[in-house]
Amino acid sequence: MRNGVSARAYFIGVAVVSALLLALAMALRPSFAYAVRDTFGLVQPVPAAPDSFYTTRVAPLFAEHCTGCHGGKRQKGDLRLDELAAVMRGGKHGPVIRAGSAGESELVARIGLPQTDPKAMPPQGKEPLSGDDVAVVRAWIAAGASATRLARDIAGAPPPVRKIEIPVLDTATAARERAAFAAPLADLQARYPGAIAFVSRSSADLEINASRLGASFDDGDLAALEPLRDRIVRLDVSGTRVGDASGPALAAMHRLQVLRALDTGMSAKSLAPLRDRGTKVHDGRF
């Protein structure tokens, strides 16, 4: 019978071929080479100083606009922008930053493209960097992409802008939330005309005034509000026939902020739990 190579020779061959394949993969993919070197502890860390321009101005931009795709969660294009060492290493096709030359840095080119360009970063549909943001990145690279230099050493960077949060009328969100209970709400509004309203145009929270229904409103009616209980923040049952039997129904309205209950059958004892959890209760007693 013909004889093959010895098992020993074969496995030496396998080791050689594996090493060659590994070397080839490392040559073709810098990011893979980096991962391999990292595994063997051969990567030089690039610690960024906490007060450096990079840490205070550049890294936050990357965190806001880039690291969702180029970070710990995913590494699109094998690029990570969540730590300086990785930023300097670059992606699938090598470095994306040429220290000292913003014009020759792939990263700068990409964030400067019009949104419709398929190579634009962030890609179309994501929040683009502002002109000032781009200028910050350019200035940092032009000044050497340093890990330590302070803001005063970086020429041409626009000053930081303090962001002021302006609460917006988020009617879209409110509309979506309102849709979730539109059907029971319509039923109940028909049953108790004029008693149920939203607290504002941009909110899905409810204000209920049962006092206008007077003695015709009782424990059974309060129980009927059950489908709305997560949305009721203000409730007035003054002058109704609501009594202690409604204790559990009121307790279930866990977002209730204000309860007016003057002249009802409710005892101080049954209202105490509501007071304890922080609901403001007006029942004419103290």
């Binding site: 013909r2 093959g4 074969y10």
Partner: peptide, 9 residues
């Protein structure tokens, strides 16, 4: 597979 091919023919 190549073990079979090369070593064991």
């Amino acid at each position: 597979v190549f073990f079979y091919l090369l070593v064991r023919r």
